[in-house]
Simulated assay, not measured.
Amino acid sequence: MTPPVFRFAPSPNGHLHLGHALSALLNARAARATGGRFLVRIEDIDQTRCTPQLEAEMLEDLDWLGLPYERPVFRQSEHFADYADALASLEARGLVYRGYLTRAEIKRHVAAEEQAGRSWPRDPDGAPLYPRDRDVLPPEELVDRAASQAPYAVRLDMAKALAVAGKDLIWREYPSELAADGGLTANWDEPEIISADPAAWGDVVLARKDTPTSYHLSVVIDDERQGITDVLRGRDLYAATSVHRLLQRLLELPEPKYRHHRLILGEDGRKLSKSGKDTSLRELRERGWTVPSLLTAIGLS
Results as ranks from 00 to 15, higher is better:
residue 1 M to N: 08
residue 2 T to K: 06
residue 3 P to K: 08
residue 3 P to N: 12
residue 3 P to S: 12
residue 7 R to A: 12
residue 8 F to E: 03
residue 11 S to D: 12
residue 13 N to T: 15
residue 16 L to D: 00
residue 17 H to L: 13
residue 18 L to Y: 11
residue 21 A to K: 00
residue 22 L to E: 04
residue 25 L to C: 02
residue 28 A to S: 11
residue 33 A to S: 09
residue 41 R to I: 09
residue 43 E to D: 11
residue 43 E to Q: 10
residue 43 E to W: 06
residue 44 D to H: 08
residue 45 I to K: 02
residue 47 Q to M: 10
residue 51 T to Y: 00
residue 51 T to W: 02
residue 60 E to W: 05
residue 61 D to N: 14
residue 67 L to S: 04
residue 70 E to K: 14
residue 71 R to V: 11
residue 76 Q to S: 11
residue 78 E to K: 05
residue 80 F to E: 10
residue 81 A to K: 04
residue 88 A to W: 06
residue 90 L to Y: 08
residue 91 E to T: 15
residue 93 R to A: 01
residue 93 R to I: 03
residue 94 G to N: 06
residue 101 L to M: 09
residue 102 T to A: 13
residue 102 T to Q: 07
residue 103 R to C: 02
residue 103 R to L: 04
residue 106 I to W: 01
residue 108 R to F: 03
residue 109 H to K: 04
residue 109 H to I: 15
residue 111 A to E: 13
residue 115 Q to G: 15
residue 116 A to E: 03
residue 116 A to G: 11
residue 117 G to W: 06
residue 121 P to A: 12
residue 123 D to W: 01
residue 123 D to A: 15
residue 123 D to P: 11
residue 125 D to E: 06
residue 128 P to H: 07
residue 134 R to K: 05
residue 137 L to V: 14
residue 139 P to H: 13
residue 139 P to C: 07
residue 143 V to R: 12
residue 145 R to G: 14
residue 148 S to F: 07
residue 151 P to C: 15
residue 156 L to T: 13
residue 159 A to E: 15
residue 162 L to G: 10
residue 163 A to E: 08
residue 163 A to W: 02
residue 167 K to N: 06
residue 167 K to H: 10
residue 168 D to M: 03
residue 169 L to K: 11
residue 172 R to D: 12
residue 178 L to K: 08
residue 182 G to H: 09
residue 184 L to M: 12
residue 187 N to R: 10
residue 191 P to D: 00
residue 192 E to R: 15
residue 192 E to Q: 10
residue 196 A to E: 04
residue 196 A to M: 01
residue 196 A to N: 15
residue 197 D to H: 14
residue 199 A to M: 09
residue 207 A to C: 09
residue 210 D to S: 09
residue 211 T to F: 03
residue 213 T to H: 04
residue 219 V to W: 00
residue 220 V to Q: 08
residue 220 V to K: 06
residue 224 E to K: 07
residue 225 R to P: 03
residue 227 G to S: 04
residue 228 I to V: 15
residue 228 I to N: 00
residue 234 G to C: 05
residue 235 R to S: 09
residue 239 A to H: 05
residue 240 A to N: 07
residue 243 V to A: 08
residue 244 H to A: 15
residue 246 L to H: 01
residue 247 L to W: 02
residue 248 Q to F: 04
residue 250 L to A: 11
residue 257 K to W: 03
residue 257 K to L: 04
residue 257 K to C: 12
residue 259 R to T: 07
residue 263 L to N: 03
residue 263 L to E: 00
residue 265 L to G: 14
residue 267 E to F: 02
residue 267 E to D: 13
residue 270 R to T: 15
residue 274 K to D: 05
residue 275 S to P: 03
residue 279 T to F: 02
residue 279 T to G: 01
residue 280 S to K: 14
residue 282 R to Y: 01
residue 283 E to I: 12
residue 285 R to N: 02
residue 286 E to P: 08
residue 287 R to F: 07
residue 288 G to V: 09
residue 289 W to Q: 01
residue 295 L to V: 10
residue 297 A to C: 09
residue 298 I to A: 00
residue 300 L to Y: 06
residue 300 L to A: 12
